[in-house]
């Protein structure tokens, strides 16, 4: 039985959770609310994270464009998704929400611009 220890981040109370699998069920100990229980279960079974990074930008004052995933992606795909962004170059102008990479690393999430950048004068 492998217990996973974690700190709940649902609220500032910061409960210390122990999560483990027992007879096919996920058990959460230490949570003081239902949302904390759910958080513990999700972190144990399929942890997901938002991905925020930058891509190369041309034709603008800045050299990088800030990007964000359209939804959370599986934690284990983060490295692969970042590597896929390495070779991407975008030209200004860019509008916030423009899709930069569709369905990054097969995660179902798009990578979109998180700000608007006008073309350099």
């Amino acid at each position: 039985m492998l217990k996973k220890e974690m700190i709940c981040i649902v609220c500032p109370n910061s409960c210390r959770l122990s999560v483990w699998e027992e007879e096919g069920r996920i058990r959460v100990e230490g949570a003081s609310c239902a949302r904390g229980m759910a958080h513990g279960r999700n972190e144990f079974t399929h942890p997901v994270r938002m991905l925020t990074s930058t891509v190369r930008l041309e034709g603008a004052r800045h050299r990088r464009l800030a990007v964000i995933s359209s939804q959370e992606i599986p934690k284990e795909k983060i490295r692969e998704a970042l590597a896929a962004l390495e070779g991407v170059t975008v030209s200004a102008p860019v509008r916030k929400g423009d899709i930069i990479v569709r369905n990054i690393s097969g995660s179902g999430a798009d990578i979109v611009a998180s700000r608007t950048i006008p073309a350099a004068e």
Binding site: M50, T52, V67, I68, K96, S114
Partner: peptide
């Protein structure tokens, strides 16, 4: 601030700092 976590109180969702400013 390209990371997310901004705007939870005001817009009810977790935005990048850049998105919040925009």
């Amino acid at each position: 601030c390209i990371h997310d976590g901004f705007g939870l109180h005001r817009f009810g969702k977790r935005m990048a700092g850049t998105e919040y400013a925009q």
